[in-house]
Design a protein around this nucleic acid. Structure first.
Lengths: 191, 191
DNA sequence: CTTTCTATATATTAAAAGTATATATAGCGG
DNA sequence: CCGCTATATATACTTTTAATATATAGAAAG
């Protein structure tokens, strides 16, 4: 889904080699999505075949490591990129969450364990939120677009945390009204 | 990612055939994720091979259409399902958004067009929010878990709308301070 | 000087997921 | 009888993910 154009977009900023492309994406957009080497190298090859980028040179590494292939975008690539950039997205947001997939069926499992899993998820998102807020400060002077996306990341994180806490409360109440002996659990889990 | 367990989970509620599984997922969780026949039938076959479900019977359709294969979960399937249900998720949420992928690079395109795309996205989410809120009413008396997930869907929708409007304002301001002649555009897009 | 470790770099393969397409059955309306 | 729609099973192909392979080079330890 648009990996080609993401790579083209990055090469508009500056020339890059494959390893650096993944690094850049992870650093700047890692909170929103990620990319794999299995996607990068085949797409670089394809873009080159289509004449949208060229492999400029193979340079010896300054620091350490093997020689690297530096890619740059062509004029044809710039035009194709803008054509895509100004087209309407063909699909809406796709979301996959192994936790939510479990959440739907929590009625089938052990209520105690369900609450534990929610607590784990709350911890994960709290930690991630802290990292994202720290990153926000770092990126304040960068691109307004990256900044706004980072804000979306923290907004989303906060929203999910709020929902998790609300869901937890309602489930504690729901489990509590069951004939199951979980009152002790409710008490233990209350702060 | 867990398609097998989603199918197992649905078969805990009641026996179903392949076509109905997709229908059920689209109706109850369509706001969060979707599934394709290309995922359903191979996984049904695999689950049967693993002894987690059985193909109970082939029944002639009452209404119309061809005969259908009714699947039901086995005891082994129930145990495997609960094992998965009570395990910690192995990954975090995955998010893919063709619009956000473009948003990041809006600095390269035409500012007018960028604002148009944002306006389109706002329309899409507003419409989706209306549908989700209507669905919320319908599901109020159903499973508390499905209900909470539906609430998450509307919460997320509202959050994204808020962010889009905030982003739009900041971008209008950002573009306005450019040396580009977009003041007219700013004026036309103001309500 | 050699070995081990780490970071950096290119790349491929297998499995899983997602998309598109094919084929079939049956009722209904023209 | 034909065309359309809904219902139903299923496969082929593409994309993504995860894992793995191979390589280079500096630094540290022995």
């Amino acid at each position: 889904m648009g990996i080609k154009y993401t790579i083209l977009g990055l090469l508009q900023y500056k020339d890059m080699h494959g390893y650096r492309i993944k690094e850049h994406i992870e650093r700047n957009f890692g909170h929103m999505w990620s990319i794999n080497y299995g996607q990068i190298y085949p797409n670089l090859k394809k873009l080159e075949e289509e004449g949208l980028i060229t492999m400029k040179e193979v340079v010896q590494n300054d620091e350490k490591g093997p020689p690297r292939k530096l890619y740059s975008i062509t004029q044809k690539g710039r035009e194709e990129f803008v054509r895509w950039l100004e087209s309407s997205p063909e699909k809406s947001m796709i979301l996959r969450d192994p936790f939510l997939m479990r959440f739907v069926f929590f009625g089938f499992g052990d209520p105690d364990r369900a609450l534990e899993l929610i607590d784990e998820q709350i911890s994960v998102y709290q930690e991630q939120l802290g990292r994202r807020q720290a990153n926000l400060q770092r990126w304040k002077h960068g691109s307004i677009f990256v900044n706004l996306i980072a804000e979306l990341g923290t907004d989303m994180n906060q929203m999910i945390l709020d929902w998790l806490e609300k869901a937890r409360k309602e489930l504690v109440h729901h489990f509590c009204t069951d004939e199951a002996g979980i009152k002790k659990t409710v008490k233990m889990n209350e702060k």
